[in-house]
C-alpha cells in the first residue's frame, strides 16, 4: 500500500526525535554529547533523503563532528577544573539548584504555544511551491560552475558567504580573547592504538578533504565540507601531540585565519569596475576565480576550526596559572 522507503522515513524521523529527547534528558553529560553526535549523523541521513547532500555533508562534518569535538573538549575541561575528572558518578558539573515548578510550567506552556504556531504555519503553507529553482537554473551557465549550490554560495549570494567567513574569523578572535591567561586542562593521554589510528587515517583524511573541495564545482561538496574534513586532520594532530602549538606559530596562524576573508573580499573588489559590480566575476575567468577563493577559504576554515578546538591562544607556559 505504501512505499517501503516511507517506512524507513518514519523510523528515521522517530529515531531523530527520540535521540533529541534522550540527549537532553540523560543525566551523564558525556552520554548526552554522544547521543547528540548520533542525532546529528541521523539528521544528516534524513537530509540525504531530502535530496540535500551538500547540507548533509556540512552537518555531518561541521554541525556534528567539529561541534561534538568542541563539546567533549569543554566537558573534559569542566571536569578537570571541578576535580570530577575520574569520578564517573559526578554526572553534572553545575550544581543543580531546583527550579520552581511554576516557572517550569510557564516555560512549557510558552514552548507549546510557539510549537503550535509553527506547526499550524507549516501545515498550512503550500509545499513544493515555486522557489528560486527556475532563476538559479537560468543563471547557472553564467556562474562558471556546474553545481547549483556552489554557484549560489560563491556567485549569486557570495556576500552571505563572505560574511559567514567573517563570522568564523570573529569567533576565533573572541575565543582567543576569552581564554587569555586561562590555565588549560592537560589533554587526556591517548594510547598507542590512537597513535596508530592517527597515522593510518591522516593521509586518507587529507585526500578526502581535498577531493571534497575539488569536486564542489560540479557535484556535492565544496569549501566548507572540505575545510571541516581537513580541520579533522588538525584535531588528530593536536590530540596525538604530533603537533604542539608554540607561541612562535601565532603569526602564521593569524595569517591563515584572515587568508580566506582577505582573498575573498579582495577578488570581489578587484573584479568590480568597468561596468561590473563587486562579485560579478568576468565569465571567462569565473571558474578560476571561484576555485581560487574556495581553495584559500578552505585553508582558512580548516585552520580556524582546528584553532577553535584548541581554544586557548598558544602562549609561553605560566606556572602560576593566574588570570593574566
Amino acid at each position: 500500500m505504501t512505499d517501503p522507503i516511507l517506512i524507513f522515513d518514519l523510523l528515521l524521523a522517530a529515531a531523530v526525535v527520540a535521540l533529541a529527547v534522550a540527549s537532553l534528558s540523560v543525566r551523564d553529560l558525556f552520554v548526552a554529547i554522544v547521543l547528540f553526535i548520533t542525532f546529528g549523523l541521523l539528521s544528516a541521513l534524513a537530509w540525504v533523503r531530502l535530496a540535500a547532500p551538500d547540507v548533509a555533508l556540512a552537518e555531518a562534518a561541521i554541525g556534528t563532528g567539529v561541534t561534538g569535538a568542541l563539546l567533549l573538549k569543554t566537558l573534559h575541561h569542566l571536569r578537570y577544573v571541578t576535580g570530577t575528572l575520574n569520578r564517573p558518578e559526578a554526572f553534572s558539573v553545575t550544581p543543580a539548584a531546583p527550579v520552581p515548578a511554576p516557572v517550569l510550567w510557564a516555560n512549557a506552556a510558552f514552548c507549546g504555544l510557539i510549537t503550535l504556531g509553527l506547526a499550524v504555519a507549516f501545515l498550512g503553507a503550500p509545499r513544493s511551491g515555486p522557489g528560486f529553482d527556475a532563476l538559479v537554473a537560468e543563471a547557472l551557465p553564467q556562474s562558471g560552475v556546474e553545481h547549483p549550490v556552489t554557484a549560489v554560495l560563491l556567485s549569486f549570494r557570495a556576500y552571505d558567504t563572505l560574511m559567514e567567513v567573517v563570522v568564523l574569523l570573529a569567533a576565533v578572535i573572541g575565543v582567543w580573547q576569552i581564554e587569555r591567561g586561562l590555565s588549560d586542562a592537560p589533554a587526556p593521554v591517548l594510547g598507542e592504538v590512537f597513535q596508530g589510528f592517527a597515522r593510518l587515517t591522516l593521509p586518507a583524511i587529507v585526500v578526502v578533504g581535498t577531493y571534497l573541495l575539488w569536486k564542489g564545482a560540479e557535484a556535492p561538496g565544496g569549501a566548507f565540507q572540505g575545510g571541516a574534513v581537513l580541520a579533522a586532520v588538525g584535531l588528530l594532530l593536536l590530540l596525538s601531540r604530533l603537533y604542539v602549538p608554540q607561541p612562535s606559530h601565532r603569526g602564521v596562524a593569524r595569517w591563515a585565519f584572515v587568508l580566506g576573508t582577505g582573498v575573498f573580499a579582495g577578488v570581489a573588489l578587484l573584479v568590480a569596475g568597468g561596468g561590473r559590480v563587486a562579485f560579478e566575476y568576468p565569465p571567462e575567468h569565473a571558474k578560476t576565480l571561484i576555485l581560487l577563493i574556495e581553495g584559500l577559504v578552505t585553508i582558512s576554515i580548516a585552520v580556524t576550526l582546528a584553532a577553535l578546538f584548541h581554544g586557548r591562544e598558544p602562549v609561553a607556559l605560566r606556572t602560576d596559572g593566574g588570570r593574566g
Binding site: 540535500a52 561541521i62 522557489g131 528560486f132 529553482d133 547549483p148 552571505d160 558567504t161 566548507f224
Partner: peptide, 14 residues
C-alpha cells in the same frame, strides 16, 4: 531541489 535554502542552511551550520 531548490539550491538557495540549501546554501542558507550551510551558512547557518557554519
Amino acid at each position: 531541489p531548490d539550491p538557495v535554502p540549501h546554501a542558507l542552511v550551510i551558512t547557518g551550520i557554519v
